[in-house]
Design a protein around this nucleic acid. Structure first.
Lengths: 159, 159
DNA sequence: ATTTACTCTATCAACTAGATAGGTTAAATA
DNA sequence: TATTTAACCTATCTAGTTGATAGAGTAAAT
């Protein structure tokens, strides 16, 4: 399960990526816009800042900005930061490998084999998706959705 | 994260799949062989039985058996049974969809889009891997491992 | 000096995971 | 029939985590 922290982080970062690159975004505004408890979001953004993903400005006119280009911020990094390794089991993790104490021989462990596949597939997606590319996907989906809306639910008009 | 329950379940089921199909396997033996706390395994096997994945026999000569062909038992079912839906977020689940209350339009939500990809990739793997196929993978890995062992670590012999 | 808005630490209730304890029931066998 | 064996079932516990809130501190702008 993705934690709320990671989920909110992605939503907030995506909003920042869509927003004017050098205009600070206030916590309160971000919270309202994305339906996130403000105090909770505060913690999350602070974490992102301390990991060098966000920049901040204090005082009037302050707020948060992306510290890097949206094309260089990957979901994999965000998820790992809040939820730890992507692998379902520590012995299948590439970034935070830990041996199973109960396992005689990992090379021939069924759980290991299957979960390594899952971790590789997940990593391929999340380490391959940047805020920029996700933003493009959202735009694409928006066009499709609004096109569908324009041609409307096909209900005959009664006059 | 895969829970210990799901992990132990897979290990136990795989051991049963490798074992004589109509010879009951006792909890205690299974626990010893797979390094699983016996009382905890008891609970897990009971759950599997109540879901129709295992059969049991009481009393002397009793124990657990697979209720179906190993080729018809998929990891997806096991994992869902103990850990719930495969999707990282409920709105991306196919088998247990729940709408996000905080999300205006799911069709254009970045989190939804990315997590649906992850859930689909995960489901493809876990719903495509049966105990039988996993067993084959383990055998294959065993051959590779023992071959590597046979040709040994390539350390020159000093005489 | 005051306002604004981020910074930081502490705290909390609710929940869950992993595990253990201990009695109950049913099947086999002596 | 009594005994042994081994699954069945319910209760309980502790430790840790998650999602969230409170409130005082600090830096920048006006």
């Amino acid at each position: 399960m993705l934690s709320k922290k990671a989920k909110y982080a992605i939503k907030a970062l995506l909003a920042l990526a869509e927003h004017d690159r050098d205009e600070p975004f206030r916590i309160a505004d971000l919270a309202r816009e994305e339906n996130i408890p403000a105090k909770f979001l505060e913690l999350i953004l602070l974490g992102l800042r301390n990991h060098g993903i966000l920049q901040s400005r204090k005082g009037k006119g302050g707020g948060y900005l992306l510290a890097r280009d949206p094309a260089d911020i990957y979901l994999g990094q965000i998820v790992r930061m809040f939820d730890g390794p992507l692998a379902p089991v520590p012995c299948a993790s590439q970034t935070a490998y830990v041996r199973c104490t109960d396992c005689k021989n990992e090379a021939v462990c069924g759980v290991h084999l299957a979960m390594k596949e899952v971790r590789d597939a997940t990593a391929k997606i999340l380490d391959g998706t940047s805020l920029a590319s996700l933003h493009r996907q959202v735009e694409l989906a928006t066009i499709h959705t609004s096109a569908a809306a324009a041609f409307g639910p096909q209900v005959p008009i009664k006059d």
